[in-house]
Structures are given as structure tokens and as C-alpha cells.
Design a binder for these strands. Structure first.
Length: 943
RNA sequence: GCCGAAGUGGCGGAAUUGGCAGACGCGUUGGAUUCAAAAUCCAAUUCUGGCAACAGAGUGAGGGUUCGAGUCCCUCCUUCGGUACCA
């Protein structure tokens, strides 16, 4: 009678683990430490999604497995709790975001505990805790107090920044501004993505197709004084650091593309009075290439210095500082109009359509330094202000964008790279009628003619260098990180702006003394943004807003930090979550770091993971952490899709349209091949059958239907709620199913029937030990104290081996399959040695911990199964007397023979040739070749 | 457009890394048990032909290397994910 009843068993064991602190982190991890980390969730109002427990179960299995193998494990959980949804809720309801956030955290905690994860709950943290963001603010002060020494490639205290004499001579204010402009955290008038609907600016990464990632509102670019973090200084270190990481290659590539290192040269083009050109040249030859080009030169960055002879015009971005100077009176009106239009264009509009190139001639000419020829200078928005020098030399023959622009405005195209002779459109390229971007041999390039592209690059760069008009240069796509938000629900900046006696800012600022941290959020009447790009914290009382120190009045910084801030360093705080004197105790830090396994979604590939690495490197340079990288091994769990759905297309008249005849329309919708709009509607599974490669309607097999699993979404109504799954099948079944679906990294569709399948496996495990025909709790009569027979021992040890290896490799689905085979085998077995059952329970316990604890205790054990040691397998038990191997003829299996597992090829051949069936297949054919692979097969090549 | 990942039964997925394709699970079919059902247990289940033994085909398509290819190489197709003027 006693059936397997997870809803009774599971809460009981969860309470036991809690009370006994079964999964407390060891004080001293010892030689084998393992730090296993999940990407902590944003506690949304919707609660957990079945995607969350996928990664969490994986890390839980790894953690439990590691503990049983005697490793010291740190496995914590927390909440990334600042963020827009809580604030939007606050704006709507007037309820403080802290209240809503706490409610959501409580719900997430309940759900996580319900799944039996072995977190050390004493270390739980939320980024919104004042004890936590105190240290987020502290780290900001570290960034504020650090400058990057490019010679040493290292962040150093700002007090060690060398101040040039020229600056010193200008006085204290100049020194302060020089210092401020070298801090890793600095204020800048940045062109920001201002989103009026959200009332905030957004990071580039939060803008998708010119719309806000959250809510899809339009985004405008406006200049605003903003906190920036100088992540670009660390570009090289962030790139190099990737090499040593055990991360998926795809993620590494994404990060390295995001950093976007390129090499080339900076070149100055003379734009002064033409009669002064020679003087300028000789001055440059004497002085060398200066740090700034000065007023008479326009500096460009190019990755193809070899194509300098083909530069037929130049382009500056609309925001270029020299644009005014370059613009002639005649062109001034046109240029001004063009720039105005460009500044109002959002990113969306700039990139919309076929990206037709537009631009206006400035009226100025520059002199091409390699041949002294004057070329026109244009302004165009296809050149970006933020990359390189904000100006380019245009080589239309060898750059697609320049070519397109040159065609539009009828500018000359001169080929300077000869493509390979067999290239189809070589003649067109040489005639300037087509564009060629690859490498070849130089032509029309004076002394460099005939040389190969890479040699020309080096030769031209060094020649320019000698003349003081060019220099090899490196550039990165990576931009400095826009670090402030005009929001309430975020960490306040620990920065004070000095005011003069009239209450106006002097431009000087200071960090809040670390002993004064945290800077708490002020109490506000309401949380509404006022629609101006000015933060809600400016609405705070004067008590909060103004501070007087040593008789000087200051106004607090009113921006808040973005959500990324708190998640940049949480992995450090788990190590020492209650420390009141440091963000983490250095001794503990060096014991636990780095994180050994980090599991989370691939959507954080470039944002969170790059930002964290940046902060970590700064903390490393400043002596707060001992490792150069935070996360050793990274695994991305795949997305879980909704259940597979069948859907058919219908036109406006409700006629069904075969999926074969449906195309994507230009607007992204669907249409039939003759252009009528169609909509898709679900079709029940039993109305569909497989035909050839696709599915068709049973009623009308000519009509193809779509069969596809979609992303879970509220609007589609295919979201699976873990609460419901746990209620119906139990937490162990949910955990097991999430792992059994397929490889952790793969995208895979949910199937409720599949959950039922693993649940019935757990039922079988229960019945393998417990007799459920009896009213009272009675063991299976088949249980015995006898030892395993040979076959049982082989099954047991093969299972230990497979489960151990697969768990170690995080190949959870195959480990589970093996445990199912074990259960099937012993369920059929009339006599089941109790010892084998116990060993099996240990193997299963990381996967289905509640059930295993229960059966373990039913079998009379007093101590938690989590405290047992992982079993070892006996290789000798795996040996078989005789194994079956196939005999192939010309690579096709024809029959099988029995051999000893260690039979030598000669012996195998002998046995094969002695076999009757082999002889009959052989007949009178001749054996051309004999192959025998020990332990595998025999193959005869015959004629 | 570019970059990345993946295409294996009705479905999710295995395959010791070049050696018996389809482990395990779902679904389906048949049987046992039952007054009946659920649950459970047993068996079958890649496709085609055949009563059967068996024969043939088969890992997105086409070609190649090899005694032997899901696995390696070339060309192409499809799906999913990322990305967007970075000089």
C-alpha cells in the first residue's frame, strides 16, 4: 500500500536538511575545493520558470556529487534584485519597490527550497541589501580611485598618477580636472540612448533595433553628463585573459568580437593652407608623429594603410570636432542641415532600410600624404564618431561602404590592389567599376607596386612613421561603459559634487568616505520619473541631497547604477557574506577563488560576463582579489521551449493554406506564395500525420502543417510552471526530467509525458525496495543479504562506472539512462542484494535526493545519504568470459561469433573461420583482406 | 549580408570518437492481471518486401577518403541562435 508519495517525502527531507545544516559550507575547504555557482536570478513577479531549474539542477548534482567525493563545496544562491520591473510596479501602485522585491524574493526562495537544491542558505544575498550594496559602492570608489597605466597595463591608485608640469602650472583646478579625466570612473558628456517612455537612458546593449530591450519603446540619442567606466583601457587584458578560460568557444568568440581588436595605422592628412604644406611636412619630419594632430591635419584610422594611394576622398562623422573648421562658407548651410538631421536620427533610423549612404561635401580638401594630391573632405553619418578617430580616408576601390558612397556621389575610384588573376570580375575591379576587399598585389602605388598587401601595409606604415605623419595603431570596437541610470531602484553613487557659496557646482567632486557607506536610497513620496533626463533622486529631501564637510557644501550624485553593477561581483561576497570590514576576507578569497563551475544562460555572453571580468581585473590590480579571472569553467544551459505544437495556415477567407506555399513576407509576417496574408492556428495532434519529410493534415494530406516548439511566453500560453509540475509529479521527477531531456547545452522542447516517464522510473525505484502491495511499510521480499551474483555484480559495477564518469562530464541524460537500465534489471531479478540497492541509491541521490534519503532511511540507515562516500567500481567485476562480436563481409554485418574479450586478432580470425555460418557466407569467394579489431569485430573483404 | 550551432524512427534523444545505428524514455500495438478501469507486469515497435527464415534500403542532399563513415574531407540545402556601416 505505501506508494511513493513525493508530496509527503519531499518537504520532510527539505526540513531535515535545513535543520541539520546538511549543506553548510566547510570552514576550510581543504585541498579539493570546488566553487559551484549559478547565475543568480532576477526575482520577477512571475516566479521561477522551468528554465531556471535546468541549470540549478545541474549545479546541484555536481555539488552533491563533489561533496560525496570528499571535496569542499561552496554552492550559494542569491538574487539580482535591483531592476526596472519592481520600479515600474512602484510607479503604478505607489508601493515601495523594496516591498515588492522582498515578496518576490520570498516566493523564489520558497520555490528553490521546494526543489531540494543543496544551497548553503546561510549565505544568501540580494544586491538590494544595504549590507551588500555598501560594498558595490565601495568597489565604485575603487574604480573612481584608479587610473590605468598603459605602460604597465595595470590599474594603479590615482595618487600615483604622474601630473605633467604644464598642468601643475595651471593650478589646482586644472590638476583636479586632469586627475578626474584619468579615473576609471569618470563623467562625460556622452551621446546617450534616452528613452522618454521609460524616463531613463539605456546602455547600448539595452537597445535593440533602436528600441528599448524592455518594453520596446523608441530611443533617442541626446548628449548628457554621465558616469562612464573606462573598460576600454582593459580591452587588451580582457582579450588575452580569454585564452586561459575553460569556456565554450562560441562565447569566447562572441566576447573577442565584441572587444573587436583591429590593427592598422593612424595617418594625418594635411588640411591647412596649401602654400604651407611643405613647411608642415618638414616640421613633422623633425618633430615626429604628435599625440594630437593639431589644427592643420585631419587624423584617420585605417586597417588598410596599403590602400593609401587609392584614397580618393575623406569623410568625417557629423560629430567630428574639426567639422566647423573644415566647412567652407558656401557649404556651411548644407553641412549644418545635414548634421542636424543626423543628430535627430535614432539608431533605428540610421540603420533602417538598405542603409543608403548620404553625405555632404564640406568644401575642404586634404592632401593625401603619399602622393601630395588634394582630395575632398565630406561629412557623412556612415562614419561613426565613437570609433577610431571619427574620420576616415575613403578607398572606394577596396571598401564596400566607400564604394557605395562613391557611386552615389560620383567620386573617383582607383584600384590599388590587383586581385588574383583568376578572379571573375578582375577587369571590372581594375577599371574601378567594382569593389575588391581582399588581399593582392599593389598597383598604382608608386614605389610599392607589385608588393603583396601585408608587406605594403608594413612598408607604408614605417615610411609614414619616419615622416612623422603616421603610426601603427590598434583599435577596439569596445566602448566605455555607460554606467549611470536616471532611476530610483538602483545603487546610489557614493559621490559628492562641490557647491560654491551660491549653491552652484564648482566642477569638483569627491568620493564619500568608505566608512560612511552605504549611501542609502532616500525616502520619496512617489517614484514617478518626471520625464526629464534627470534622476528621481533629485526629488529627495535636502537632508539627503546636501552634505557639508569641513564647511564645504556638497550635493549628492543623483544618478543610480545600472542593474549590472550588483551582479559584477556577487560571486565574491558569497565567500564571506557577513564581513563588515571588507568586501571579502582576502584569506577566504584565496581559498575559494576562482569559481570552478559557472552555469547560466548564453544571453549573458557579452554583458554580465565581460563587465564582471573587468571589475575583477580592477580588483585584482588593486589587491582585493588574488586571481586574474573570476570564472574558470563556464557552461551555458540551453533554452527550454514549450511543448511541440502543430499549426496550419489560413488565409483571410479561412481557407487552409499548405505550409509549403507560405513564405516570409517583407514585414516579417507570413504570406502565401501569391502574396495573400495568412495567419497560423494550432491543430490538434491527432489531426496530423507524418508524410515523407513533413507533417500533413489527416483530412487533407495535400496540406502541410508546421510542427515546431516555440519559446515559452505568456502571450503564447505555453509556459510551464514548476509549482504545477512539483505538485503533480514531485520535485525529484522535475529535477530528473530536466536532466533527462537531453544534453544540458542543447535547446529542447518540454514534454509533460516525458515528466510522467521519469516519474514512473522513480516509482519503479521505490518498488524495487518497498513492497507496495502491503498496507504497512514492508521491504520487498526479494531483498536479500546475500552478495551479488556475477551478472548482478557486473550490472552494479558497470552502473557505478558509467554514472561516475557521466556525472563528472555533466552528461546527465546518459547517466540517468544507465540508472534506468539498472532498475529494469533488478526489478526483474528474483533476489536483490540490499548492498547493491544501497550503492545504487547513493548513485541516484544527487539526481533524486528526496527519494534516495527516504529509501536509505527505510533500509535502516541513520545518517543522511548526502554524507555517504561515492562508491568506486571494481574493474574486475566488469570482465566477461566471452563476448559477442560481429563478423562483416565487405563491411556489412552478416553474423556474430563468441570470443574471449582479450582474444588476439589471430585467435579471432581462427574462431571466425571455424564458424559454420562464416563458412557458408564465404562459399567459394576469395578472401582479399582480413581485418580483426580486438574486442570489436572481424571483417573479410571478399571477391 | 556576416558569424556560430545543429539536422539520426511517430517524438525527445544514444552511439566507447572511424568499428553491431537507434541505448534510455515517450508514444503506439498486442498480451497478462482485474467484475471493470486505473496502476502494474510481459512482449513487439526504423522503413520496404515476405507466412517465415531472410533480403534490401537507411543518420538533411550530392560527391569523396577507407576493409568499414552518423562520426573525417569537399559542395549544397534547411532550421535555430547571435550580429549589424567598427574603416
Amino acid at each position: 500500500m505505501p506508494r511513493y508519495n513525493p508530496s509527503e517525502i519531499e518537504p520532510r527531507w527539505q526540513a531535515y536538511w535545513d535543520e541539520n545544516k546538511t549543506f553548510a559550507t566547510p570552514e576550510n575547504p581543504g585541498a579539493n575545493k570546488r566553487y559551484v555557482l549559478d547565475m543568480f536570478p532576477y526575482p520577477s513577479g512571475d516566479g521561477l520558470h522551468v528554465g531556471h531549474p535546468e541549470g540549478y539542477t545541474a549545479t546541484d548534482i555536481v555539488s552533491r556529487f563533489a561533496r560525496m567525493r570528499g571535496e569542499g563545496v561552496l554552492h550559494p544562491m542569491g538574487f539580482d534584485a535591483f531592476g526596472l520591473p519592481a520600479e515600474e510596479h512602484a510607479i503604478r501602485t505607489g508601493e515601495h519597490p523594496r516591498i515588492q522585491t522582498q515578496r518576490n524574493i520570498d516566493n523564489f526562495t520558497r520555490q528553490l527550497k521546494m526543489l531540494g537544491f543543496s544551497y548553503d542558505w546561510d549565505r544568501v544575498l540580494a544586491t538590494t541589501d544595504e549590507d551588500y550594496f555598501r560594498w558595490t559602492q565601495f568597489i565604485f570608489l575603487v574604480l573612481f580611485d584608479t587610473w590605468f597605466d598603459h605602460d604597465q597595463q595595470k590599474g594603479r591608485p590615482i595618487s600615483e598618477l604622474p601630473i605633467p608640469d604644464a598642468i601643475k602650472a595651471e593650478g589646482e583646478l586644472a590638476i583636479a580636472s586632469f586627475v578626474d579625466s584619468h579615473r576609471l570612473a569618470y563623467l562625460d558628456d556622452a551621446l546617450v540612448n534616452w528613452c522618454p517612455n521609460l524616463g531613463t537612458v539605456l546602455a547600448n546593449e539595452e537597445v535593440v533595433d533602436g528600441k528599448s530591450e524592455v518594453g520596446g519603446h523608441p530611443v533617442k540619442r541626446i548628449p548628457l553628463r554621465q558616469w562612464m567606466l573606462r573598460i576600454t583601457d582593459y580591452a587588451e587584458r580582457l582579450l588575452e585573459g580569454l585564452d586561459e578560460l575553460e569556456w565554450p568557444v562560441g562565447i569566447k568568440k562572441l566576447q573577442s568580437d565584441w572587444i573587436g581588436r583591429s590593427t592598422g595605422a593612424e595617418v594625418d592628412f594635411y588640411v591647412g593652407e596649401s602654400d604651407q604644406y611643405d613647411a608642415w611636412k618638414s616640421e613633422r619630419a623633425a618633430s615626429g608623429f604628435p599625440a594630437a594632430p593639431g589644427a592643420s591635419a585631419l587624423r584617420v584610422y585605417t586597417t588598410r594603410p596599403d590602400t593609401l594611394y587609392g584614397a580618393t576622398y575623406m569623410v568625417v562623422s557629423p560629430e567630428h570636432p574639426m567639422l566647423d573648421q573644415l566647412t567652407s562658407d558656401a557649404q556651411s548651410a548644407a553641412v549644418r542641415e545635414y548634421c542636424e538631421k543626423a543628430s535627430f536620427k535614432s539608431d533605428r533610423e540610421r540603420t533602417e532600410g538598405d542603409r543608403e549612404k548620404t553625405g555632404v561635401f564640406t568644401g575642404a580638401h586634404a592632401i593625401n600624404p603619399v602622393n601630395g594630391k588634394p582630395i575632398p573632405v565630406w561629412v557623412a553619418d556612415y562614419v561613426l564618431a565613437g570609433y577610431g578617430t571619427g574620420a576616415i580616408m575613403a578607398v572606394p576601390a577596396h571598401d564596400g561602404r566607400d564604394f557605395q558612397f562613391a557611386v552615389t556621389y560620383d567620386l573617383p575610384v582607383i584600384a590599388v590592389v590587383d586581385p588574383p588573376a583568376d578572379l571573375e570580375n578582375r577587369d571590372e575591379i581594375l577599371a574601378g567599376k567594382a569593389c575588391f576587399e581582399a588581399v593582392g598585389n599593389a598597383i598604382n602605388s608608386g614605389p610599392f607596386d607589385g608588393q603583396e598587401t601585408n608587406d605594403v601595409k608594413a612598408a607604408i606604415t614605417s615610411s609614414l612613421s619616419e615622416q612623422g605623419i603616421g603610426k601603427g595603431a590598434v583599435n577596439y570596437k569596445l566602448r566605455d561603459w555607460l554606467f549611470s541610470r536616471q532611476r530610483f531602484w538602483g545603487e546610489p553613487f557614493p559621490v559628492l559634487h562641490e557647491l560654491d557659496s551660491d549653491g552652484n557646482p564648482t566642477g569638483r567632486m569627491r568620493g564619500v568616505d568608505p566608512s560612511e557607506l552605504p549611501v542609502r536610497l532616500p525616502e520619496l513620496e512617489d517614484f514617478k520619473p518626471h520625464g526629464r533626463p534627470e534622476p528621481p533622486l533629485a526629488k529627495a529631501d535636502d537632508d539627503w541631497l546636501y552634505v557639508t564637510i569641513d564647511g564645504v557644501k556638497y550635493r549628492r550624485e543623483t544618478n543610480t547604477m545600472p542593474q549590472w553593477a550588483g551582479s559584477c561581483w556577487y560571486y565574491l561576497r558569497y565567500i564571506d557574506p557577513k564581513n563588515e570590514t571588507a568586501l571579502v576576507d582576502p584569506e577566504l578569497e584565496s581559498k575559494w577563488m576562482p569559481v570552478d563551475l559557472y552555469v547560466g544562460g548564453a544571453e549573458h555572453a557579452v554583458l554580465h560576463l565581460l563587465y564582471s571580468r573587468f571589475w575583477h581585473k580592477v580588483l585584482f590590480d588593486r589587491g582585493h582579489v588574488s586571481t586574474p579571472e573570476p570564472f574558470g569553467k563556464l557552461v551555458n544551459q540551453g533554452m527550454i521551449l514549450g511543448e511541440v505544437e502543430y499549426s496550419a495556415y489560413y488565409d483571410e477567407d479561412d481557407n487552409v493554406v499548405s505550409a509549403k506555399d507560405v513564405r516570409k513576407s517583407a514585414e516579417g509576417g507570413r504570406q502565401s506564395k501569391d502574396g495573400r496574408a495568412v495567419t497560423s492556428r494550432p491543430v490538434p495532434e491527432d489531426a496530423v500525420q507524418k508524410k515523407g519529410e513533413s507533417f500533413v493534415l489527416v483530412a487533407d494530406p495535400k496540406v502541410r502543417v508546421e510542427s515546431r516548439a516555440h519559446k515559452m511566453s505568456k502571450s503564447r500560453g505555453n509556459v510551464v510552471n514548476p509549482d504545477v509540475v512539483v505538485k503533480e509529479y514531485g520535485a525529484d521527477a522535475l529535477r530528473l526530467y530536466e536532466m533527462f531531456m537531453g544534453p544540458l547545452e542543447a535547446t529542447k522542447p518540454w514534454s509533460m509525458d516525458g515528466v510522467g516517464g521519469v516519474r514512473s522510473f522513480l516509482d519503479r525505484v521505490w518498488r524495487m525496495v518497498v513492497d507496495d502491495n502491503e498496507d504497512d511499510l514492508v521491504m520487498q521480499p526479494a531483498l536479500t543479504d546475500q552478495a551479488c551474483d556475477e551478472e548482478q555484480a557486473r550490472m552494479l559495477h558497470a552502473t557505478i562506472k558509467k554514472v561516475t564518469q557521466d556525472t563528472d562530464e555533466m552528461s546527465f541524460n546518459t547517466a540517468i539512462a544507465r540508472m534506468m537500465e539498472f532498475t529494469n534489471f533488478f526489478t526483474r531479478s528474483e533476489s536483490r542484494p540490499t548492498e547493491a540497492m544501497k550503492t545504487f541509491l547513493i548513485l541516484l541521490s544527487p539526481y533524486a535526493p528526496h527519494l534516495c534519503e527516504e529509501l536509505w532511511s527505510i533500509l535502516g540507515e541513520k545518517e543522511s545519504i548526502a554524507k555517504q562516500s561515492w562508491p568506486a567500481w571494481d574493474e574486475a567485476a566488469l570482465v566477461q568470459k566471452s563476448i559477442e562480436v560481429p563478423v562483416q563481409f565487405n563491411g556489412k554485418v552478416k553474423t556474430k561469433i563468441q570470443i574471449a574479450p582479450d582474444a588476439k586478432p589471430d585467435q579471432m580470425m581462427e574462431i571466425a573461420l571455424a564458424d559454420e555460418r562464416v563458412q557458408s557466407f564465404l562459399g567459394d569467394k576469395t578472401i582479399v583482406k582480413k581485418i580483426a579489431v580486438p574486442g570489436r569485430l572481424v571483417n573479410f573483404v571478399v571477391k
